[in-house]
């Protein structure tokens, strides 16, 4: 067979694409995957799930004391009640930031993350430096995200697993009385729900 002679009008499959096609061919022939189902999953994670889901959970918790209590006791059910359910059978735990305790989420072993409420993780969440340093030096990591907390605030780090994922409920910003849930949700960033950020002040959103 010919060796490389690249013409830009030739069809070339890069090695990774070819490997994925090869595996997909095998799995399709064995009836284990359906290409249409693959496309639907891609569409879901590219377009349908993302941090806006989590922001709605947080805004509801800020607005509704009973909901916040439910979220504290049974986050899986309270989150599912808004239509967000995990597909990996994972349980959710909501961890609430307070003036005394700030929560930060990591997955030290791989990249477990609450997909149903935050979508897929940002690249830095998957990076080895974050995964190791979040545990060893959470205050230093937070500083890199421009989050500086009072020394008196304790930082609690939560290590996600395949079975249990965490959603940080950031503190409600000041001067937000009377805002609608929708307006409150706009103040909730992705990073604030990982613990790597704070909710935005009104007017900054």
């Amino acid at each position: 067979m010919a060796h490389h002679h690249d013409h830009d009008h030739d069809n070339e499959l890069d090695p990774m694409t070819a490997r994925v096609r090869a595996l997909e061919t095998i799995l399709t022939e064995k009836g284990l995957v359906d290409p249409a189902a693959i496309d639907a999953i891609v569409d879901t994670y590219e377009h349908k799930v993302g941090p806006r889901n989590g922001a709605r959970v947080v805004a509801r918790a800020w607005s509704d004391r009973q909901y916040a209590d439910w979220l504290k006791q049974d986050a899986t059910a309270a989150i599912a009640s808004l239509g967000f359910t995990g597909r990996q059978g994972e349980h959710m735990q909501a961890v609430f930031n307070t003036p005394e305790t700030h929560n930060l989420v990591v997955c030290t072993l791989c990249s477990c993350y609450p997909w149903s409420v935050l979508g897929l993780p940002p690249v830095w969440y998957k990076s080895p430096p974050y995964r190791s340093r979040a545990v060893i030096d959470p205050r230093g990591v937070l500083a890199e995200f421009n989050v500086v907390l009072p020394q008196s605030t304790r930082i609690r780090v939560w290590d996600s697993t395949a079975e249990l994922r965490y959603l940080v409920i950031p503190m409600r910003p000041a001067n937000t009385e009377g805002l609608s849930e929708e307006a409150l949700a706009d103040l909730v960033t992705r990073d604030s729900m990982i613990g790597a950020g704070l909710a935005l002040a009104p007017g900054a959103a």
């Binding site: 890069d14 990774m16 694409t17 490997r19 994925v20 595996l23 997909e24 799995l27 284990l32 995957v33 359906d34 189902a37 693959i38 496309d39 999953i41 891609v42 994670y45 590219e46 597909r87 990996q88 897929l120």
Partner: peptide
């Protein structure tokens, strides 16, 4: 890249 999405989705589908 598209292959990343395909590889991701295959895992979800197989699970």
């Amino acid at each position: 890249e598209p292959w990343q999405a395909q590889a991701f989705a295959m895992v979800v589908a197989l699970h």
